[in-house]
Design a protein around this nucleic acid. Sequence first.
RNA 1: GCUCAAGUGGCGGAAUUGGUAGACGCGCUGGAUUCAAAAUCCAGUUUUUUCGGAAGUGCGGGUUCGAUUCCCGCCUUGAGUACCA
Length: 1117
Amino acid sequence: MQYNHQEIEEKWQKFWAENQTFKAENNSKKPKYYVLDMFPYPSGAGLHVGHPLGYIASDIYARYKRHKGFNVLHPQGYDSFGLPAEQYAIQTGQHPAKTTEANIATYRKQLDKIGFSFDWSREVRTSNPEYYKWTQWIFTELFNSWYNRDTEKAEDIATLEKTFNISGNTAVNAVSDEGILLFSAVEWQAFSKTTQEEILLQYRLTYLSDTEVNWCPGLGTVLANDEIVNGVSERGSHPVVRKKMTQWSMRISAYAQRLLDGLETIDWPQPLKDSQTNWIGRSQGAMVSFQVANGVEKTTAEIKLSYKELESLKVLRQNLSKAETVLWDELKNKKGAAKFRKKYTIGSFLVDYVCLAKNIIVDFSGKEDEAARTTYFANEGFNVVRFSNEAVIENVLQVVSKINAAIQFPKAIEKSATIAAVKLVADPFKIDVFTTRPDTIFGVSFMTLAPEHELVSKITTAAQKGAIETYIKATAKRSERDRMADVKTISGAFTGAYAIHPFSGAKVQIWIGDYVLANYGTGAVMAVPCGDQRDYDFAKHFDIPIPNIFENVDISEAAHAGKDGTKIANSDFLSGLKYKKAIKLAIFEMEKRGFGYGKINYRLRDAVFSRQRYWGEPFPVYYKDGMPQMIDVKYLPVVLPEVEKYLPTEDGKPPLGNAIAWAWDSRAKKVVGNEKLKNKTVYPLELNTMPGWAGSSWYFNRYMDATNTGAFASKESLEYWKEVDLYIGGSEHATGHLLYARFWQKFLFDKGIVPVDEFAKKLINQGMILGTSAFVYRATAFVKNGCSTEKSNDDVLDKIPTVLVSKNLFNSDDEFEAVVKNYLLDKGFLNPNFADLVMLVKTPIHVDVSLVNASDDLAIEAFKNHALNTEYKNAEFILEAGVYKVGREVEKMSKSKYNVVNPDDIVAEYGADALRLFEMFLGPLEQAKPWKTSGISGVYSFLKKLWKLYFNEAVFEVSKEKATKEELKVLHKTIKKVQEDIESFSFNTSVSTFMIAVNELTALKCNKRSILEPLLLLLSPYAPHISEELWRKLGNKESISAADFPVFDAKHLVESTKNYPISFNGKMRFTLELSLDLSKEEIEKTVLEHEKTIAQLAGASLKKVIIVPGKIINIVA
RNA sequence: GCUCAAGUGGCGGAAUUGGUAGACGCGCUGGAUUCAAAAUCCAGUUUUUUCGGAAGUGCGGGUUCGAUUCCCGCCUUGAGUACCA
């Protein structure tokens, strides 16, 4: 009986679908295992042979785990919102839902043919309202949350409002917008509702704000940073510009540190972790303030802190000095009336600690404005207790007891009459910089501000005004891309102003330059030319001094960026220290002297969440008095409205602006026609939609309970499945999907919605399958210039046909030309008189890979008749040995390169089992590797050989006889290897193992049931159809998928002899069969007496004999 | 520039803790079968050789009885990132 893959595969695919063989149970006594593939976007082009690679690997693992007794969840679905369907809709007017539906149908058909064990009863589609209802709900949850730095988690916004009502926002330690107004409880209560909402918006985890966004005019939408590659859009490669727009953003920056820390706990590929670490971009250093010489800010009479000061206050709370920490550890535990707060503002003064109930201020002594503080605090009715740093560190308990005494016995306060003393001291301008190398602060010889820096206009001297303005104008003209492309040109201008070095007091020049980015850090740098190459180049270019602060380092040619092993010099108290110690000491001194503090900076920015597109999740948001309002989960989903066209409106609004029914009736709680907007209780709905990553950031949780209508998933199912155990997908998602999904998971975890804060325990990036492109080499003829002829060039060229040259006929362009020329002369296409005038240039042309066989021979007639090759219909072929050999090159699989292979064709010709085996056989899962269809014949003949083992000619026949020792050895060797391979995800080697097993069993003429039955179980994860068929033929009634994996028994592999390799000086020279019972001495004796040993030694003296029993014998001469 | 990964026959790749380098498959060569082809089966296939051997895992060095594997330096290719202070 012949192996008929088409019949068998169709039969079993139907069986699995009808019997729901792979449906996972949410209630099971078996241990759970969750295997997931990254969410596919159903593109119109369908699958090529590279797409199923990861799916096959995960399917093998899922099937293996079922054999091992696990309750396996292995679902599949579609990330079905997205740009391509919408772009297609714009071009053709077809509704994206329709094209998406059609694409999914194609996709599904293709997937089904490969025999995956997906539980399709759990399929989800992000564009289904039943699904995006919950995406909208998560959005409202984010909106109703803020990030509490004290508890390090997201909390309900109500807890924040409560705090505001009790004590204002000064003591709140939250992640928020920059520059927040400080207010007291009384002030909060006095604010209008709208003002309160505006303030809350600055704290919410998703918020509306005017932000600089990446606007892509080509797509008519904004893009997130990860959607831009090399300055152009990832989809379609359109240019991107910076633009200020009101947009929804996600406060992912709140989770920067936790996203970093979480990487330690998950088993993901190192390169992927590295790229996330890189993207988050944590840098540890210091914030340092430089005063501007003579620059004075306007005096304000108002006793309120500026936004900037408030910001630094928040940071100060995070960066306590040692003494402050020690004392705080004692004070913070006080409860009730004696409760202390740290770094609190009283009037315009920042006090170290305060107990508001008892009117006690605890302050460190030695502050410059101590007298003014004392006066002010006394007038406000506070008792002030002062301690030195040293006193706290030496004996904190004594300090605490003094504070307790002050609480119990407050001093009578003498109110001073001189209230006028509370005038603010005029603040000079200062420039804040962030540096990762505070140890090099004595190397600062100038400062550079970004041209956009707010201080530039204020500090520029009259003399330099012209130069600065010219420079700013020039940089503004350059686009972001130009600035990125041109890193070499050094440009800048001097402001004429000077800053005071905070340690040395020296005057340093203040410059502006566009190598400093306005939107990173503070938009200003302290330039250390001896230690930073960009500062060095800048200083050299503008002739600014380059002081050397490194011991024994030459900086005459370049800056010295190395830090290990270099000692700091010429740096006052830092001299002689290595960088680690110097950094610590520098920060310590800055904090002590009050102009700087240690700080951690992150590169990660908040993610823009609005898209000006149609085909995405609508926001569950309407606007009342201009303020966004969330729609309650009870009334979700807010369904995407129909529109006439998918383009922006004439006045530039997003496509949803075209909808005629897009208003929210807040009474009826439903979407109504726009004409009702004149009613008082009807409000406009949000016109933006959510980005592609919204739906994919939580879908793995939905699969756990995909059809639940009452919750995004039930508590029980979330608790049972917990997280994905194995997640397989491409590395292109490293900084997009995988970072956002981790962020949402942590948020949902904080809110107690999901039980784990990392959604995927183990992740594998499958490598790309590349195409093997085929080329023919065309000769293009030219007539050389400069030689005048009576005949026109065209006459000569007209006679020359298109010529294609077989690959191995030339090694160089010159040889190529010679070959073609000889051919043309031979055949009379070229008049010998003009031969010298004609030049022939080689042009490689892609040819469709389906026209080439395994030996790289081109099917010439098929090539000529191919639809794409009409211009070669009459081409001449220069052959080698009667055939035309094509050139081969490995490239990305793409339509334009004619190297795309469709899995459907492979399945039709060789079967799904062969496809599955071959994809695995190509090489290690994680590696990129080229596809060459010819190789599949190897696995196909393997399947035929396997089939034959179960047949005696045409009859299915297995024997009940006892297996021989040899046969058992083959089986158990295979069990061991295959099990190890699957568990270490090296699927390629198990395919070889199967081949070896079948080759050996064929040689042994084995047809024993006791060998052939377990063999099917080993193979079943890889080639499930043929295994099911033979399993059934063996008389089994149940599907093979539920049967137990065979158990390896080491006793079958025990050997009595070993074919020892005999090495001389480490080189193997011959082998010798020896009993494993022999002692070392006996082995040595036998080997040394052997004639080949004597011949090999050839009289040389023996130095040493190394014997590793069971492994090797090495003779050293 | 920085970070990471990888370099083994004509090709994809194997060698899991340092122990017989090139398993398995493709391709190629020769043979059997066939009128012929496909399919199938058998033998061979790193290089070199005076047919005894000898050399060989990107290059140069080191550790070791022994290195594709560990260490140091370099070269090449690929991926990510990029004026990040």
